[in-house]
Amino acid sequence: MRKHWQEPFLWIHAAGILVFPLWIGLTVIGLATGDPLFPVGVEQALVAVAGIVPIFVMQWRKPFNIFSLLVVSIAPDDLTPEQRRILAAFLSPEQKILTVLAAILMLEVCERLYDFAPLFAPLTPSHGTRIAGLVMAALGFWGANLFLQIPVSVARVLLLSEPELAQIEPIPTHQIESQFSVVGSQRTQLLQRLLSWLPLPSQEPEVALAESGSASSVPTHSTPSHPESTAPPETASETPVDPA
Rank of each mutant, 00 (worst) to 15 (best):
Ile12Phe: 13
Pro227Asn: 11
Asn65Lys: 12
Glu82Thr: 09
Thr188Tyr: 02
Gln95Val: 12
Glu211Arg: 07
Leu37Ser: 14
Trp11Pro: 02
Ile55Thr: 12
Phe147Val: 09
Met106Thr: 06
Leu107Ile: 12
Asn65Gly: 14
Leu107Met: 10
Leu146Pro: 01
Pro205Glu: 12
Thr239Arg: 13
Ser214Arg: 13
Val49Ile: 14
Glu82Ile: 03
Trp197Glu: 05
Ala50Met: 08
Ile104Met: 13
Pro151Leu: 02
Val157Cys: 06
Trp142Cys: 08
Leu148Asp: 01
Pro118Lys: 00
Ala88Gly: 03
Val152Arg: 00
Phe120Met: 07
Glu43Asn: 06
Gly16Ala: 02
Arg61Thr: 13
Thr27Ala: 05
His174Ser: 15
Tyr114Gln: 09
Glu211Leu: 09
Asp242Leu: 15
Ser181Leu: 14
Pro172Glu: 04
Ala14Trp: 15
Ala15His: 03
His221Ala: 10
Ser222Gly: 10
Asn65Ser: 14
Ala121Lys: 11
Glu94Met: 12
Pro219Asp: 08
Ala137Tyr: 01
Ser73Ile: 02
Phe141Leu: 04
Pro54Met: 05
Ser68Ile: 01
Ile66Tyr: 08
Pro199Phe: 01
Thr235Leu: 07
Arg84His: 01
Pro243Ile: 14
Leu98Phe: 14
Gly16Met: 04
Leu69Asp: 05
Pro172Cys: 00
Ala244Asp: 11
Gly133Asn: 06
Asp115Ile: 12
Arg187Phe: 09
Pro224Gly: 06
Val182Tyr: 05
Ile66Cys: 05
Glu234His: 12
Gln189Asp: 15
Val53Phe: 12
Pro172Gln: 00
